[in-house]
Design a protein around this nucleic acid. Structure first.
Length: 467
RNA sequence: GGCUGGAUGGCAGAGUGGUGAUGCAGCGGACUGCAACUCCGUUAACGCCGGUUCGAUUCCGACUCCAGCCUCCA
């Protein structure tokens, strides 16, 4: 397998530290608000990655943290007049709900910053002892960036070129403007933990260093996150972790592409974000997931109503091929490490190449065509092909619902009435009263119900208003 | 200004040194009472200028434009 490594800026063969086992840490959410589509992209991207690695035979330990103490959380809780804990618990529950609806499997571990303050303090202490950090007079503790020779290696940045003051806050308490905070002294009435440097709370970057190495060891295989985390967050994680342990922190850095709206980056700070739950009011979660998987995980994608309806039409083609399979699709065991069929092999080749999901989807469509052909000819391959389509789709977290559910939607339609209309139309057709038959079909069409005649009778699907 | 990445047919989106991505849309045909679904066929692309090569969309260089990061952000 080949994985693109942000650190080296090229694809490299996957070489797990421990044969057959992959340790993966992904930066998760700061839980002060609902998740938006940018979060969805990261969750889905690494969900697909972990699913595929497992399908490929690796034993994966997937850790994704929750940042549950942070300036934005303090502010939001105060604005809402609720406790920090009430806010974060509410948002964590919402996040779990959102990801479940998107078909994202839970990570193996979900450590929270507030649950690892001891480990954070211990790491800061090591950094101070080694001369990489210093307590300041105001009670903060800072990381001494100039002390870490490799600083900037992830982003190809030279500290000497990062003109102090340009966009970095000049802070009297720092020795150097590039230094960043490891421990933040608590102001009166702020949430606090005791520490050797006074009451306070962890800085943002240090929690990931402490939790990732705590869960996975000083060196692990894959570290992932959103596109905007490469600097400074991940650069700082490297500085902290490698200074503290003296070992390589991460072998492969992986970053998802940005989600844009109207050609502008979607972000909380710009306020142009769509929350997952808002989008799911109008759209099937699997359509959203399809949209996210239809582009390579590193490419930027533009979110729009049009792109969603196109995703829906594409997914409809896959589900249509699986509709009313008789006999039932065969359960297929894929064994993607040594694929048996041509489709599985090409699917695996695509995914082996840095998780090329668009190419993998192309294989699903080719399989779909073959399945449709087999159905038209009534060949014995139908259950096997259908089972294979389902199984390969499942690796991407797609095709998980029944075709009828997807195609007919969750609408509160009176199915008995629809069937009665269809029966009435069948009678009219039998009597060659096509005017009546067509008017019945038109009436149903006006309600968004599309009829499809076949040898076995008439089936119907709902044409989504959103495409 | 610095650092990354990108520019592919009407749209979305992979990929490749010489032949078909794929999906949606279009066109022709089959199926159908007519449609829808499906199938068969088909149109159509590689930002710009140089270089390497028998041959470049693919490799190299310049240029133009776009995006992300450099500030909390997934």
């Amino acid at each position: 397998m080949q994985l693109y490594n942000t650190l080296t800026r090229r694809k490299e063969p996957l070489a797990p530290r421990e044969p057959g086992h992959i340790s993966m840490y992904v930066c998760g959410m700061t839980v002060y608000d609902y998740c938006h589509l940018g979060h969805a992209r990261v969750m889905v991207a690494f969900d697909v990655i972990s699913r595929y690695l497992r399908e490929r035979g690796y034993n994966v330990t997937y850790v994704r943290n929750i940042t549950d103490i942070d300036d934005k959380i303090l502010k939001r809780a105060a604005d809402n007049g609720e406790s920090i804990e009430a806010l974060t618990e509410r948002m964590i529950a919402a996040m779990h709900e959102d990801e479940a609806r998107l078909g994202v499997l839970p990570p193996d571990r979900e450590p929270r910053a507030t649950g690892h303050v001891d480990a954070i303090i211990a790491m800061i202490r090591v950094l101070i002892d080694k001369g990489y950090a210093y307590p300041a007079a105001n009670g903060d503790v800072y990381y001494r960036v100039r002390e870490f020779a490799d600083y900037g290696k992830l982003n190809n940045r030279d500290p000497d070129d990062m003109r102090s003051g340009a966009r970095v806050d000049v802070d009297d308490h720092k020795e150097d403007p590039l230094d960043f905070v490891l421990w933040k002294a608590a102001k009166p009435d702020e949430a606090r933990w005791p520490s050797p440097w006074g009451d306070g709370r962890p800085g943002w970057h240090i929690e990931c260093s402490a939790m990732s190495t705590g869960c996975l060891g000083n060196t692990f295989d894959i570290h992932g996150g959103g596109p905007d985390l490469t600097f400074p967050h991940h650069e700082n994680e490297i500085a902290q972790s490698e200074a503290a342990t003296g070992q390589t922190y991460v072998n492969t850095w992986m970053h998802a592409g940005a989600v844009r709206v109207d050609e502008e980056k979607m972000s909380k700070s710009l306020g142009n974000f769509f929350t997952i739950r808002d989008v799911l009011v109008e759209h099937d979660p699997e359509v959203v997931r399809y949209l996210l998987v239809a582009s390579h995980y590193r490419s930027p994608i533009n979110y729009s109503v049009d792109s969603l309806s196109e995703a829906r039409r594409s997914l409809t083609r896959l589900y249509t091929a699986l509709e009313n399979i008789d006999p039932e699709p065969e359960p297929v065991s894929l064994s993607l490490a040594e694929p048996s069929s041509g489709h599985a092999r090409r699917f695996a080749e695509a995914m082996d190449d840095d998780f090329n999901t668009p190419e993998a989807l192309a294989v699903l469509f080719e399989l779909t065509r073959e399945l449709n052909r087999a159905r038209a000819n009534d060949t014995a391959d139908v259950p096997r092909l259908a089972g294979e389509l389902r199984a390969l789709g499942g690796v991407l977290g797609l095709l998980s619902q029944s075709p009828a559910t997807f195609l007919k939607g969750e609408t509160a339609l009176d199915e008995a009435n629809i069937e009665a209309q269809i029966a009435r139309r069948a009678e009219a057709k039998a009597a060659r009263d096509f005017a009546t038959a067509d008017s019945i079909r038109d009436e149903l069409a006006a309600q968004g119900i599309i009829l499809k005649d076949s040898r076995e009778g008439t089936r119907w699907v709902v044409q989504s208003s959103s495409g």
